[in-house]
Amino acid sequence: MEFRFTEEQQMIRETAASFFADCSTSAAVREAMVTERGYDLSLWQQICDDLYLHAITLPESLGGMGLGYVELVAVMEQMGRYLVCSPYFATVCQAVPALQRAGSEEQSAPWLERILGGETATLAWIGQEQPGCDAVTATFEPVEGGYRLSGDYHLVVDGHSADILVLVARQPGTTGRDGVSLFVVDASALVNTNAIERQWTPTLDQTRHLGRIRIDSLLLPVDACLGEYGQSGAVLEQVLQLATVALAAEQMGAAQQVQDLAVQYTKEREQFGRPIASFQAIKHKAADMMLRTEVARSACYYAACIADEAWQRRAMAAELPEAAAIAKSYCSEACFRNAGEALQMHGGVGFTWEYDVHLYFKRAKASELMLGTASEHRETLAKLLLDVDQPDKGAAA
């Protein structure tokens, strides 16, 4: 496959890079990350109103751009590069695919229009440390006029602040894909109820905020269920695979940036009367960092092309699980190892508060654990290659 950006894709990539370089400076990131919300609301409004980047994958019929995952990955690469503190990943890379894939056009349109208007959203599904649908522990049961949900969601990206919640629950007694449903909820309508509790969960990565959501006998109307109830397990898995590709792009962007920061520092830092960049050992480290970044970029944009096939429901959609696993496993290690090498190349000052390398190192470690570790994705690849206990790969397409 020969990959080249179109003029439109290159323009989106360059515009995003220029904007985030100006608006997501070190000072701006540090100011946003200490707030409970975790991002600057004015920056989010600029992303939505001025650049319209939140509408990349939204359909043109609703006023979106109607583009695909290559464009989305180009934006996520630059967000990772500049550690942008925003609800973009939760809203555009998790909630939007869930709304579009799980619900009918009639169901999802009102919620997507609210997102187009600048509201934020997130997807909550993790109840225990298991991959995919196995992580879902919240339960629901049909009642007169709707559904009753109960459960505890952990590690929800922007879960404490999102305006719209997509909650995943299963029928009691079911496992795996069976019995899984997605429910959409207006968070503001539940502020004064005792059925839901949301709180910020501080973690290692201060630049991306996670929340915890507890629900207890939350009553929802019939139309809150996206699609046919109990039949959305395959959809959830595809949504998570699409989000995995987007997260890998963010990791790749971060890997590029720590490489650039390290190289720049070694050109300025002198030892024994000359810049340490002239030492062969440093050159070898820089070369290894560059190799990891470039291979990560290839894996990531290949996965973006496959994700686009899945998004458009085309022939290669069935390859998404494999492409997502390849991209995430390699990008996770490339980002973390590059961040570690950058710390070494900075010497003792690398992990001090004054330098940004430690922020990238924390993001690298946190994102490595999100949506499956490298080892877990390699296990997935092994099962796919050996065709061991795998469900129909095209079921969610």
Results as ranks from 00 to 15, higher is better:
residue 203 T to I: 08
residue 249 A to F: 05
residue 42 S to L: 14
residue 325 A to T: 08
residue 241 Q to E: 14
residue 61 S to C: 10
residue 87 P to H: 03
residue 18 S to A: 15
residue 238 Q to W: 01
residue 286 A to G: 00
residue 125 W to I: 10
residue 209 H to Y: 04
residue 246 A to P: 02
residue 382 A to F: 11
residue 274 R to I: 12
residue 387 D to V: 11
residue 157 V to T: 15
residue 161 S to H: 05
residue 55 A to W: 01
residue 156 V to F: 08
residue 160 H to S: 12
residue 342 A to T: 06
residue 286 A to N: 03
residue 263 V to M: 06
residue 226 L to N: 07
residue 360 Y to E: 02
residue 349 V to P: 00
residue 282 I to S: 04
residue 291 L to R: 13
residue 106 E to G: 08
residue 147 Y to W: 15
residue 68 G to H: 08
residue 188 S to F: 04
residue 50 D to F: 12
residue 193 T to W: 00
residue 126 I to D: 00
residue 92 V to T: 11
residue 182 L to W: 02
residue 40 D to T: 13
residue 304 A to G: 06
residue 28 A to S: 15
residue 73 V to S: 15
residue 324 A to W: 05
residue 102 A to L: 12
residue 321 P to H: 03
residue 371 L to R: 07
residue 359 L to W: 01
residue 9 Q to C: 04
residue 304 A to I: 09
residue 326 I to A: 02
residue 300 C to P: 01
residue 9 Q to R: 07
residue 302 Y to W: 13
residue 103 G to F: 09
residue 367 S to E: 05
residue 386 L to K: 08
residue 330 Y to N: 01
residue 269 R to P: 00
residue 242 L to T: 06
residue 220 L to T: 06
residue 115 I to Q: 02
residue 211 G to M: 07
residue 123 L to A: 10
residue 21 A to K: 15
residue 156 V to L: 06
residue 279 F to V: 06
residue 20 F to M: 11
residue 296 A to W: 03
residue 36 E to Q: 15
residue 313 R to F: 10
residue 352 T to G: 10
residue 38 G to V: 13
residue 313 R to I: 08
residue 67 L to H: 03
residue 306 I to A: 06
residue 51 L to P: 01
residue 162 A to F: 09
residue 380 T to P: 00
residue 164 I to F: 06
residue 58 L to R: 06
residue 202 P to I: 07
residue 84 V to P: 03
residue 57 T to E: 00
residue 244 T to N: 05
residue 164 I to S: 04
residue 124 A to H: 07
residue 89 F to S: 02
residue 40 D to K: 09
residue 100 Q to A: 13
residue 113 E to Y: 00
residue 205 D to R: 08
residue 283 K to T: 04
residue 259 Q to M: 11
residue 197 E to Q: 13
residue 142 P to L: 07
residue 114 R to W: 04
residue 369 L to F: 08
residue 210 L to H: 10
residue 180 V to M: 06
residue 280 Q to A: 12
residue 79 M to C: 13
residue 231 Q to A: 14
residue 147 Y to A: 12
residue 24 S to A: 15
residue 229 Y to P: 13
residue 126 I to P: 00
residue 133 C to V: 15
residue 102 A to T: 10
residue 108 S to P: 07
residue 40 D to W: 04
residue 85 C to D: 01
residue 262 A to Q: 01
residue 218 L to P: 07
residue 80 G to L: 07
residue 187 A to L: 03
residue 305 C to K: 03
residue 126 I to E: 06
residue 152 D to P: 00
residue 47 I to E: 01
residue 295 V to L: 15
residue 186 D to G: 05
residue 352 T to Q: 12
residue 168 V to W: 00
residue 31 E to L: 13
residue 359 L to G: 02
